[in-house]
């Protein structure tokens, strides 16, 4: 037999190393046991997770605190992959979503949120965070609706308490209306919206035909961003319903060049619906 390049001793060494690797203590996720207690709601998305705590020793705690615990568990299984363990939008998969261009996963600690129902520059409401988690962002973030409302709220609370660390507003000054009654679509309304589109200079970014195009625009992180193609609803990150488009116009998308038009439409909110109808007409809706 030819000389063995890697003898039995070496093989044994590797095997012992692997055995030690396998038998090493399992590194658990860092959990805040001081805040555990009773009252957690059942979480539909948590199949396969085992309770390894000593429940008898848990102190009483509020339902919100328990929800934060649940939210942390979900976040550390799924959300951190993009948003990072510190919520700074720097998770291991984040750069591949928008390597050299917008979008990137949000940095929750920056206090800048694109998708809100509040005024431009304000923090989002908890329901805004929940809406994004529930609906996802087409093309970039999956919907987590199967967590159920309790699970979704838990994640939103965890983000708010841990990363934003400020009280979120519970109301908004922006006047919203359902897309019913006087706000339903009409060709006349869309025509008025077409005029507004140019008057309000929407065409400067989105183009005369609404198809956007390539401009040297940057977001707050100085990353290249392209105006949305208004003729393709699948590119609308903030939702595609009539109300979603209205909300986007009024609040703007903080962190991007898209401003909020709430001040411009104050007292004339009906005109904003005209603009919504014009955008819908661009999509043949």
């Amino acid at each position: 037999m030819q000389q063995t390049k890697y003898n039995i001793k070496q093989s044994a060494l590797w095997l012992i190393s692997l055995f030690l690797l396998l038998s090493a203590p399992v590194q658990s996720q860092e959990m805040d046991h001081s805040t555990m207690g009773k009252g957690a709601q059942e979480m539909p998305g948590m199949k396969g997770m085992k309770d390894m705590s000593t429940m008898d020793k848990m102190p009483e705690m509020s339902s919100d605190a328990m929800a934060v615990m649940k939210g942390k568990m979900i976040y550390n299984m799924s959300c951190f992959l993009c948003h990072g363990t510190n919520g700074e939008g720097d998770g291991p998969a984040s750069r591949f979503i928008g390597p050299y261009s917008h979008p990137r996963p949000n940095n929750f600690t920056s206090g800048i949120f694109k998708f809100r129902s509040t005024e431009s520059g304000d923090l989002p409401m908890l329901t805004d965070l929940m809406r994004t988690i529930r609906e996802g962002i087409p093309g970039y973030m999956p919907s987590f609706r199967n967590l159920g409302e309790d699970g979704i709220k838990a994640v939103a609370l965890y983000i708010a308490k841990t990363f934003i660390q400020e009280e979120l507003p519970t109301t908004t000054t922006i006047k919203y209306a359902k897309h019913v009654g006087p706000y339903t679509y009409s060709a006349k309304s869309a025509s008025r919206g077409g005029m507004l589109y140019n008057i309000m200079k929407c065409n400067e970014c989105h183009g005369n035909d609404g198809k956007g195009g390539r401009m040297d625009l940057r977001d707050e992180r100085k990353i290249m961003i392209h105006p949305v193609d208004l003729t393709r609803q699948e590119t609308f990150g903030n939702g595609t319903s009539h109300e979603d488009i209205y909300r986007t116009i009024m609040t703007g998308l903080d962190g991007t060049p898209m401003p909020g038009y709430n001040d411009a439409f104050k007292g004339e909110e009906d005109s904003a619906w005209d603009l919504v109808h014009y955008i819908l007409s661009l999509q043949g809706r």
Binding site: H33, G48, M49, K50, M52, M73
Partner: peptide, 22 residues
């Protein structure tokens, strides 16, 4: 096949400890 739910049982009200998938 994800045997987690069968082996580990339904999720408890108290989520803590290391993550388990599968």
């Amino acid at each position: 096949f994800n045997l987690g739910p069968s082996i580990l049982g339904p999720p408890s009200d108290h989520m803590s400890g290391p993550m388990v998938m599968g």
